Simulated scan of single mutants.
Amino acid sequence: MPPKYYEEIGKPTPKVEVMKFLKWKGFKDAKDYAGEYVQGTCNYGTRVDYILNLPDLCCKFVPQSYSVVSSKGTSDHHIVKVEIVREVERDQERVKRRKHKVKEKVVRITNSFS
């Protein structure tokens, strides 16, 4: 939505700095897995609800599965949904890495006074 629209309805222009920062940090946005059209997530047509994922987790978003469902009459926020699947290969790699970690050893230190 153009900034003029928000001025006309008396609302502040949505800020995008936080999402830019999270994407820069490697977070994946479920909206990137949407179909052709994505509506806003609230009554004003803006996007205020997000589903994010880190790429090193053992799950991923299913392409074309992101959608926004109207919650008219129950909330001013719509329902945001996306399908997530587990990446078995990545999960197995994480288990292998955990097994190969160096095990920590606890050592008791005592003071001896002579």
Rank of each mutant, 00 (worst) to 15 (best):
M1C: 12
P2N: 15
P2L: 14
P2I: 13
P2E: 15
K4M: 09
K4S: 14
Y6W: 14
Y6I: 06
E8W: 03
E8C: 08
I9G: 01
I9S: 00
I9P: 00
I9L: 02
G10N: 04
K11S: 11
K11P: 00
P12I: 13
T13E: 13
P14V: 00
P14L: 04
P14E: 10
K15H: 09
K15G: 06
V16D: 15
E17G: 09
E17T: 14
M19Q: 10
K20W: 07
F21N: 09
L22S: 04
L22F: 03
K23W: 00
K23R: 15
K23T: 02
K23L: 02
K25M: 14
K25H: 03
F27V: 01
F27M: 08
K28E: 07
D29E: 08
A30F: 01
K31T: 01
G35Q: 11
Y37G: 03
Q39P: 06
Q39N: 12
G40N: 07
C42V: 07
N43C: 09
N43I: 15
N43E: 12
Y44N: 07
G45A: 13
R47D: 00
R47A: 05
V48N: 02
V48F: 09
D49A: 05
D49M: 07
I51K: 02
I51V: 14
L52I: 03
N53C: 06
D56G: 06
D56V: 09
D56F: 11
L57C: 12
L57T: 13
C59D: 03
K60E: 12
K60M: 09
K60A: 04
V62H: 04
P63Y: 15
Q64F: 10
S65W: 14
Y66L: 02
V68I: 11
V69F: 07
K72R: 13
G73N: 11
G73I: 14
G73K: 00
T74H: 11
S75D: 02
D76Q: 03
D76W: 05
H77E: 05
H77D: 04
H77K: 01
H78F: 12
H78S: 12
H78C: 04
I79R: 10
V80D: 00
V80I: 12
V80S: 00
V80H: 00
V82P: 05
E83K: 11
E83T: 06
I84M: 12
V85R: 09
R86D: 00
E87Y: 00
V88N: 02
V88H: 04
V88D: 07
V88I: 13
E89S: 12
D91A: 15
D91G: 05
Q92G: 08
Q92V: 13
E93C: 14
R94Y: 03
V95F: 12
V95G: 02
V95M: 13
K96D: 15
R97Y: 01
R98P: 01
R98T: 08
R98H: 07
K99E: 15
H100P: 03
H100R: 10
H100F: 07
K101T: 06
V102C: 03
V102Y: 06
V102W: 05
K103D: 05
K105L: 15
R108F: 08
I109S: 06
I109M: 12
I109G: 07
I109K: 11
I109N: 08
T110A: 11
T110L: 10
T110G: 10
N111W: 10
S112M: 12
S112V: 14
F113N: 11
S114M: 11
